[in-house]
Computed example of a mutant assay.
Amino acid sequence: MEAELTGHLGYDKGDPAGKGSGNSRNGSTPKTVGTEVGDIALDQPRDRNSTFASALVPKGARRLGGLEDMIISLYAGGMTIRDIQHHLASTLGTELSHETISKVTDAVAEEVKAWQTRPLEAFYPVIYLDALVVKIRDGAHVANRAAHIAVGVDMDGVKHVLGIWVQAAEGAKFWASVCAELANRGVKDVLIVCCDGLTGFPEAIEGTWSQAMVQTCVVHLIRASMRFVSYSDRKAVAAMLRPIYTAANEDAALIALATFADSNLGKKYPAAVASWENAWDRFTPFLAFGPALRKVIYTTNSIESLNYQLRKIIKNRGHFPNDAAAIKLLWLAIRTIEDKRARQRAKEAGLPKGSPRKAPGKLVEGSLIQGWKAALGELALVYPDRINTYL
């Protein structure tokens, strides 16, 4: 700050050049600021004309940037505002009010809003849609709500989180509004939309992108059928289901399903057979594709792995005061997870070639789908008119 004042006045302390300049040093003012290493007492220099303002410690500032970054990091990790308040007091000796910490975390609200409304690309070959449950305070009660998440794959095979939306329940009507919002932000066409087996979901998607193929997640379908199977029979049932979703074509898949239905296990668990029969029209589209593209669209694991990480953070929080708070934390959590993984990879960047690397790859944002070139080639053969425009 003394150096800043020297730059402001134009001469060093004690320099005769300052005589008659019209402004000079005028002592200092004691000030205490909160930092990431605790409270620090400063002597903030002044000038006689009161025109000096430090960029390092602005007027009225009671916290330096490092402390605010720490608060946001703790919040993104799932700690509540009161937890953060206690943590700072016990580790740094810094006493901050509930309102102050709340204002710091609310400072990212505009950034979240800008991210949520940013323009999107006109074409995504594949989009994954899924939801996870969050607890939101509703008056005197805490209610379960669904946080809807969309992940898009661009032409380079890179995944992007397109947005997060919170609604009272995961329903086809709300998914229709999500698809409409994505279209309003620039998404004109989608080849394949991967989702779970929610009733009305395909109609909601086709209402926005009429030519989109809706693919029911095979993993969701397997889980749904396994709900009716006892633990002792699960391995045997899974072995009988495998020929269905690995079949060369729909006819072979029908034969495999009939074999399962006529078996002792199929007769023992007719509800498991029915779950496949009821979802058959939305399961079979991917059987028309080759192995490379099947690997991309047979499951929504790209979004499931993200949801798994987010659930760990949500579990720490318990519930949120409102929808905006839930979206804010989920967005911060995604950013924090990706930053943490990037730092781990940076530490291993200097290792000799061939050395074992333990750092995880990107979770979702910016990660590349394995085998994408082969999958894109298959898409170009199946949808030449729609995809060649963007190649």
Results as ranks from 00 to 15, higher is better:
Pro356Arg: 14
Lys358Phe: 14
Ser367Met: 08
Tyr383Ala: 10
Leu376Asn: 10
Pro356Met: 09
Lys362Leu: 06
Pro352Val: 06
Val364Arg: 00
Leu379Ser: 05
Gly366His: 03
Gln370Gly: 14
Gly371Ser: 01
Pro352Glu: 14
Arg357Leu: 08
Glu378Arg: 12
Leu379His: 12
Ala346Lys: 11
Leu363Val: 02
Leu351His: 11
Ser355Asn: 08
Leu376Ile: 06
Leu368Asp: 05
Gly371Gln: 00
Pro352His: 07
Ala359Val: 03
Lys362Thr: 00
Gly377Ser: 08
Arg357Trp: 04
Pro360Val: 10
Trp372Phe: 02
Leu368Trp: 12
Trp372Asn: 01
Leu363Ile: 11
Glu365Ile: 04
Ala374Ile: 09
Lys362Asn: 07
Lys353Phe: 04
Gly377Trp: 03
Val364Ser: 00
Ala380Gly: 03
Lys373Thr: 13
Glu378Leu: 10
Ala349Trp: 03
Ala349Met: 08
Tyr383Arg: 10
Val382Leu: 15
Gly361Thr: 08
Ala349Pro: 06
Arg345Asn: 04
Ala374Tyr: 10
Pro356Asp: 01
Pro360Ile: 15
Gly366Asp: 05
Gly361Phe: 09
Ala380Thr: 08
Glu365Asp: 03
Ala380Asn: 06
Arg357Asn: 09
Gln370His: 12
Gly377Ile: 00
Ala346Cys: 11
Pro356Thr: 15
Glu348Ile: 05
Ala375Met: 12
Tyr383Ser: 00
Gly377Glu: 07
Ala359Lys: 02
Leu368Asn: 14
Lys347His: 02
Leu363Asn: 05
Ala374His: 12
Glu378Tyr: 13
Gly366Ser: 07
Leu376Met: 10
Lys347Ser: 06
Glu365Ala: 11
Lys353Arg: 05
Gly366Lys: 09
Gly377Lys: 09
Gly361Ile: 08
Ala374Met: 01
Leu351Asn: 04
Lys353Leu: 09
Lys347Ala: 10
Ile369Leu: 14
Ala374Pro: 01
Ser367Trp: 13
Ala346Asp: 13
Leu379Asn: 13
Trp372Gly: 01
Leu376Ser: 03
Lys347Pro: 00
Gly350Gln: 05
Leu379Thr: 07
Glu365Phe: 00
Leu379Ile: 13
Pro352Ala: 09
Gly371Tyr: 05
Gly366Pro: 04
Pro360Leu: 05
Leu376Trp: 03
Ala375Val: 14
Glu378Thr: 09
Ala375Arg: 08
Val382Ala: 14
Gly350Pro: 03
Leu381His: 07
Ala349Gly: 06
Pro352Phe: 04
Lys362Val: 02
Leu368Ile: 15
Leu379Asp: 01
Ala374Asp: 15
